[in-house]
Computed example of a mutant assay.
Amino acid sequence: MLGDLQVLLARAELVDQSAKQTATAITEATAAYQAQVDDMVAKLRVETASIVLKTTEHAAQSLVGQQQATLQKAATLALQQALTDTVLKRTRRDWIMTASVSALTGSIFTLGLMGAHAWLFGS
């Protein structure tokens, strides 16, 4: 029985050594796998950051373009409105000035005719 017990102990030590070797092999394989996963995660982070940056730049450029178009349209409308107001004011002013000059000219002409009539025909 002692011989059988020694054989069992020897086999238990072999199993223990085999388990240690298996654990070491699994730890090394896990370390290699972990390194690959870490590398892929790092690459994905860089790629994701690049995509986010490109998307943000594109959105910013689109927004700036839209703002420029809106500001340009607003400036054009403001300029057109200002020109229209200026032309209308000038046209009204010119019309009033022409009417005033015409009235004054007509009054002077009428006074001149009345004066000539009074001078020629007496009273």
Score class of each variant (00 low, 15 high):
1 M>N: 12
2 L>D: 01
3 G>R: 07
3 G>P: 00
5 L>P: 00
7 V>S: 15
11 R>P: 00
12 A>T: 14
13 E>T: 07
16 D>S: 15
17 Q>F: 03
17 Q>M: 08
17 Q>K: 11
19 A>T: 12
19 A>I: 13
19 A>S: 15
21 Q>Y: 10
22 T>Y: 08
23 A>W: 01
24 T>C: 15
25 A>V: 04
26 I>A: 05
30 T>A: 11
32 A>D: 01
35 A>K: 06
36 Q>P: 00
39 D>R: 00
40 M>G: 05
43 K>C: 01
44 L>W: 02
44 L>T: 05
44 L>D: 07
45 R>T: 08
45 R>E: 14
51 I>D: 04
52 V>N: 04
52 V>T: 10
53 L>N: 14
54 K>A: 01
55 T>F: 06
56 T>I: 05
56 T>Q: 02
57 E>Q: 03
58 H>C: 07
61 Q>K: 11
61 Q>W: 09
62 S>D: 12
63 L>H: 09
64 V>N: 09
64 V>Q: 02
66 Q>L: 12
69 A>R: 05
69 A>V: 04
72 Q>P: 00
77 L>H: 05
78 A>D: 03
81 Q>R: 12
84 T>N: 08
85 D>E: 09
87 V>R: 04
90 R>P: 00
90 R>T: 03
94 D>M: 10
94 D>T: 04
94 D>W: 03
95 W>F: 10
97 M>K: 15
102 S>E: 10
102 S>H: 10
105 T>M: 07
107 S>P: 00
108 I>W: 08
109 F>I: 15
110 T>Q: 14
110 T>R: 14
110 T>P: 01
110 T>H: 09
111 L>H: 04
112 G>H: 02
114 M>C: 12
115 G>R: 07
118 A>E: 01
119 W>C: 03
119 W>I: 04
121 F>S: 06
